[in-house]
Design a protein around this nucleic acid. Structure first.
Lengths: 243, 243
DNA sequence: TTTTATAAACGTCATCTTTACGTTTGTTTT
DNA sequence: AAAACAAACGTAAAGATGACGTTTATAAAA
């Protein structure tokens, strides 16, 4: 950008976590936090993000941000959009949060989302006041972070229809109904269990284990795993034109 | 980015143009150009791009870049990925092209692609030495621009299967075979004409005109238009899980 | 021990979609 | 008038989907 403003490039992360027990798709956010001379201000929630370090790729930054927030590495991640409107940090409500030197700063953010299991995250292990919120019941969010989450969610909705990323949100061993519940959570729809079940069981990469649920008070369900190996081997792009 | 390097944020544009006559999907690139004190250097081709102005959104920058290159506005555009690897401009071959002050610069680019008709572009109207190349037969490209084009193309391949963006590449009036040819060009596959034809004709938003091809030396084909109105009206997200 | 409640799992039929071909039609050129 | 040929139409089998009924296995209650 050829002008007087200072540029700032950061990565913001939308962390989606699914809780198979409560069937709820959540987003991890932190309390907005500012130490001034006089006091510590805390109000809305925001996404976690950070500046891109000098020798880092954008992917590396996203990985670092997730690790610092959750302790996790090797989670599914996707860069889905860049945000950089000139006014994106200057809603009236946000002005107090902008440090003086930042008034003259143009901030771009490359947004990523992660897919993982809420159970894998220990919220006490980090210094942020991180908290899960259901994706359909988010708190007030600072800056343009509501919009960023909404766009991440839209991308997830589309992508889960054509790629087996759904399994990144589930434990290794799952039941057919777990998968159905998750699709219903993400897409906000009801699916016929008998048809869904038939469809999934017919996939060669959904493999039945010699194992059933334990500790349930009804007929225990068959457990399955998703085999990425089988999926990759049999995978051939199907060019189904569906417009 | 909290470090000494100067930051630079630009938008690069991959302009896809389809030529219905030759059935070829092309990319518009320009000669790489540098005026030094002694001489004018020209070698490889590169994508067009420019810095993001102070009061501009990223979308505005992309629109401006396209207009400056082609004179066109209101073309289909999509932001598909940000590129920002620390080494993305410093291949050995590229070093000569980096101005002195840029050695200490970290450059991010937000990449867009456009869909339009080659016929709509008058290449003589701009100062660049712009040239169309078939997407499967690109010239040597500077920086990481080959990679950027490849990723744009991948996105287009996926997206044309689930959204009617194909019609952005065709003239308003087209034949069924035009559409088939275009899908075959983009996807690099052969499609059965009889099945494809039936499928397309059954779509309510593909509307037959009272008009046929003229000036062809065989049976002239029926002309159709795509009705965005009908498409939007009847559109309801079909949640076909196709994993 | 038997019964009951209930989620899991299986089954069926009609309809729509896709795949793989063969056939006819309409226009221009010979 | 005939030939050439792309455009356009047709058909049957296989596969996928949608809608819905039935059976089964388990834990908890009686």
């Amino acid at each position: 950008m050829k002008n007087e403003k200072i540029l700032n490039v950061s990565v913001d992360c939308v962390v989606f976590g699914y809780d198979v027990a409560t069937k709820s798709l959540n987003v991890l956010v932190i309390k907005r936090f500012l130490e001034s001379e006089k006091e510590v201000l805390v109000d809305d929630y925001v996404l976690t993000g950070y500046h891109v370090y000098q020798h880092e790729t954008l992917d590396d930054t996203a990985t670092r941000v997730l690790k610092e927030l959750t302790g996790l590495t090797n989670q599914y991640k996707k860069q889905f959009k860049a945000f950089g409107n000139p006014d994106r940090l200057t809603n009236e409500k946000d002005l107090i949060w902008i440090k003086n030197e930042e008034f003259n700063t143009r901030t771009f953010t490359i947004a990523y989302y992660f897919l993982l299991k809420t159970d894998d995250v220990d919220l006490n292990k980090n210094e942020h006041q991180a908290k899960w919120f259901p994706v359909n019941n988010l708190p007030e969010l600072g800056f343009d972070h509501k919009k960023i989450i909404t766009e991440a969610y839209e991308d997830l909705k589309t992508k889960c229809l054509s790629e087996p990323i759904i399994f990144k949100l589930l434990p290794d061993k799952f039941t057919i109904n777990d998968v159905q519940d998750l699709y219903e959570s993400i897409l906000g729809i009801k699916i016929d269990n008998r048809n869904f079940r038939r469809k999934l069981i017919n996939k060669k990469y959904i493999i039945a284990l010699d194992e059933k649920q334990v500790g349930v008070s009804k007929k225990p369900a068959q457990l399955y795993i998703f085999s990425k190996d089988v999926y990759d081997k049999m995978f051939q792009k199907n060019y189904l034109i569906n417009i």
